Simulated scan of single mutants.
Amino acid sequence: MTFGFASSGAAGMSGHLTSAALSADSAHRLARMLEPAEWSAAGIPLLRNPREVVGALHALHRPGPATAVLAVLDPDERLRASASFSRRATATDGWVFRNALLAQLRRVIPHDLRRRTPVRTAVLLYCRDGDARWTQEDGAWMWGLRDACTLHGLRCGAYITLTQDGWQVLGEGRAGRRPSVGSRPETFSETDPPAPRTGGAASEVLRRAAAR
């Protein structure tokens, strides 16, 4: 049996390959993200009343930092299903985010792949630290949402961030100060009820959540 050390040339080659692999992985991750301009150009359908949708999802799930809230809306923007989960990935990678979103969709609602044209729309509310400016993490979530919707037969809807500054629909410029990270769910009087258009059992769940 022979023991020894690799030559400096071999060591240098190994280090070079490692750096090249890391560079390729970084390039792939950058390719799996969307910037706001690309998102806007993709023709993402606008929410008629984003404040209602954000308020309803915030009241129902009460997300904290690094929490994603995925919701499926029907053509009348009534909530048909939703799920919240914490980000566990260490890397900002749209492929990883896509898989996480797709797993949640498969858990809460049947796919619409048999339809010629998607009817239901998925929107994503992501609660994070920092300010409202777009980040690469947002871009990876956008890529992941678009791809997950395609694989589940849904329309890709709005991507919304929730930060200390409030909420913002990325790529549209629509925003509000409440709710925000750490804020209590808003309650509304009967004379001024911006109740979300949810209908059925979901409407009752959101009504009780908003009244807490």
Rank of each mutant, 00 (worst) to 15 (best):
G4S: 04
A6G: 01
S7I: 07
A10V: 07
M13K: 13
G15E: 07
L17P: 00
A20I: 05
L22V: 02
S26A: 13
R29K: 07
M33L: 10
S40K: 12
L46P: 05
P50A: 08
G55V: 04
G55R: 10
A59G: 15
R62F: 09
A66Y: 11
A66N: 15
T67E: 15
V69T: 15
L70P: 11
L70M: 10
L73N: 08
R78F: 02
S82W: 08
R87H: 00
T92S: 01
V96S: 04
I109E: 05
L113I: 07
R116M: 06
A122C: 15
V123A: 12
L125C: 08
D129T: 10
G130M: 07
A132Q: 14
E137S: 13
L145T: 07
D147L: 11
A148E: 13
H152N: 11
H152Q: 07
R155I: 04
D165F: 07
D165T: 02
Q168C: 13
L170G: 01
E172D: 14
A175P: 00
G176R: 06
G176N: 10
F188P: 02
S189M: 09
E190M: 08
P196K: 09
R197H: 15
R197K: 12
T198F: 05
G200S: 12
G200I: 09
V205F: 12
R207P: 02
A209E: 09
A209T: 05
